[in-house]
Amino acid sequence: MSVLDLGGIRMSIRPALGRMPAWATRVVVVAALLTAWHLAVAGGLVSSLTVPAPLDCLRRLPGILGTAAFWSDAARSLRTTVEAFAAAAAIGVLAGALLTRLPVVARILEPYIVGAYAVPVVVFYPTFLVVFGLGTAPIVLTAFLMAVVPVLMTTMVALSELRPTHRKLARSLACTRWQAFRSILLPSALPLLLPGLKLGFVYAMAATVGVEFIVADAGLGFRIGELYRNFETVDMYVHILAMIAVAAGFNSLFNLLERVIRKDLA
């Protein structure tokens, strides 16, 4: 064995032995960012009146988590998000499945569906407000419109990437359309479908909280805006951090779901 080969082996072993798991490094990265933030405030780089120190936020956290207002805000945002997402998932998947059955219609709509990504749907919000009035209906509608586009697009991609053998199998077993969809095609498309659903949820949540921030009377987004307008900086930061934690939490939940289902597939 030559020296060169040894070098190659050493190179391939070192990372496996010398490195922490990725999640641990991730924790270190986040901790470093928080420390930098803390030092910036403590060192007077930014005024603690405009940006509170992370430790102050941490101290305030239990107080806010103990209030009923926080949980009712969170529940309100979550309910709006889930309603919009559920509608987007159902309609997006069905429409995607329908469009793959109607290739000519799909070809007509294709540039518009792709173009829908380019449209900042949330700007329609004032028009919904005028038509539907205050309340959650305009928020749900806006969040639905944001979420339905990625669900529809990934459904179409997932169904078009189905293995031809699976389609042929379904035909050779003389399946009805419903049997083919339920027993073979849908589960086969699921690994590609799930990321689209995840993105749809993410978009629904972002739209909900975003619109709440601008015009609403409850919800996490509304609360952050309210605290901002009242100059309650520490409470505002705590709510923003809580919002980020909730969003990251749901992201991990979907990742977990994905892994569980994919392991099932595996």
Partner: peptide, 11 residues
């Protein structure tokens, strides 16, 4: 029919 590709349903 038995196909050339793997046609088992992995789930």
């Amino acid at each position: 029919m038995v196909f050339q590709d793997d046609s088992t349903l992995h789930w």
